[in-house]
Computed example of a mutant assay.
Amino acid sequence: MNIFDNYKNVIRKAVENDPIKSKQTFSLNESLLDRNREFLSSLKNELPGRELSEDMKTLARGMGVAVTFDYQPLGSHPDFIHLKGTDMVEEHWIISGFIDVKKSTRLFNRFTKGTVRLITESIIRASILAVNLCGGYVHRVQGDGLMVYFGGKSIDKKKAVEDALKSFSMISYFVKNDLKDFFEENGVQDIHTRAGLDLGHTNQVDWFYSGVGDSGEVTTCSLHTSLAPKMQANADDNGMVVGHNIATNLGRPKYFEQKTKEIHDYEDGRLYHQYNFDWERYLVDIGLAVQNHAGVLVLTLNAFPDPKRDSRDLYPIASKSKPYFSRCTQGN
């Protein structure tokens, strides 16, 4: 299954037609740059918008998501938008997440800023797709990264934890598996994601409007919102670090490795711990990935019986994952 192929193909075309890459010089004349700007403007139209590709629709159906879902407005969690412009404060649990692409500034050493802009836009759009497919809310776009919330007033807390881990795992997969080799083939080394996630319980989170007039946003005040970006900074390359509240709510210790250094000291004898999260193992175990014959992770959906899934939606996915497909058909 190739749900990120449209994003990857736009990046590939932008890189292959980049005038700096083709000429290996930074002294480019304006006419050449103008032609490249026109090409990039046309190429941007190939990025998926609100309409999902067939592979995306198949994945959405298999995950139990309507293929007509709409993207949520930036920074507008529907359960708390009524706080905008008011002095009201509400307590409610939420999962805060931060993910971005590290060392992406190296792209400027190889390509024009127009190409870098389109690469960044492709990664951001793919990330927004993964967040929305998994029921999350993009709060803010920060360069080539996202601040995201998962959860809400009508959402089960454990399910929100599972959805947050699933979403960030898919984004990590995209950069590590779909983009890494292509970037390295074009002289860009060590581009990777880092992610951090933490859960603040209801008595640990204030929702409120921060700012003046239109210069503000509905946001959260919580230790755990503040800790999520710190965990991101502590993640390994292509890694994800989560807080103790996430680990205990998922209830599957095999995915978590406690880091030697705590993420927060309450200064009263209590310590708050952080954990490396094995997102690749998690994707396989929840049926969103398999290993191919070469041991490479492939995004897919398994076909184990599930009353919420329609086998007609799963067949086209399983058929594209040969090791898995052969295993499935042997039982028929």
Rank of each mutant, 00 (worst) to 15 (best):
M240K: 03
G152M: 03
F98I: 01
S311I: 03
Q232R: 13
Y7G: 01
H201L: 14
I246T: 05
S41I: 00
I99T: 12
G239D: 01
Q204N: 12
L199N: 09
A164H: 10
I81N: 15
K113E: 04
L43G: 05
L83E: 13
D268H: 01
I119N: 00
R281W: 02
V65T: 10
A233E: 15
N245G: 15
S172H: 02
Q274N: 10
P78G: 11
D237M: 05
H92L: 12
K320A: 10
E262W: 06
V175F: 08
H77F: 11
W207P: 02
A66R: 06
D313E: 11
F4Y: 04
L59E: 03
E184I: 06
H201T: 12
G143H: 10
I191E: 00
S104P: 02
D156K: 05
G269F: 02
F168C: 08
L227W: 09
Q204L: 08
S169P: 03
G143A: 05
E91I: 14
G211P: 05
G200I: 02
K8Y: 08
T25M: 09
A294H: 13
W93I: 01
L118F: 05
M88Y: 00
L59H: 05
L133Y: 12
H82P: 02
A160T: 01
D178C: 14
I3F: 13
R270G: 01
D198H: 13
L118E: 06
S321M: 14
D306H: 14
F111S: 03
Y173Q: 02
K21Y: 15
M231Q: 14
V175K: 09
G200N: 08
L223W: 06
T112I: 03
G151C: 04
T219K: 07
S41P: 01
E217I: 00
K153M: 05
H264R: 15
A233L: 04
I95L: 10
V290H: 04
L32W: 08
A126P: 04
D144L: 05
D100G: 12
I317L: 13
L83R: 15
G136M: 11
Y255H: 02
A60H: 15
Y266D: 14
T115E: 13
A60I: 11
R327N: 12
M231T: 03
A126D: 08
K44L: 05
L129F: 15
I263H: 09
F168W: 07
E30P: 03
T225M: 07
N29Y: 07
E54C: 00
E30R: 08
H224N: 14
K8T: 09
L179W: 06
P48F: 14
N132Y: 12
G187K: 02
H192D: 00
T120K: 09
Q232G: 12
D306P: 03
E90T: 11
L52G: 14
T68D: 09
D268R: 09
Y255K: 04
L288P: 07
F174W: 10
D178T: 05
D306I: 07
I94P: 00
A247T: 14
H244E: 15
L301Q: 15
A303G: 08
K176Y: 06
V67D: 14
E267I: 01
C221R: 15
S210P: 00
A247C: 14
T120E: 11
D100A: 08
S31A: 13
K159C: 04
Q142C: 06
K44C: 03
R252L: 05
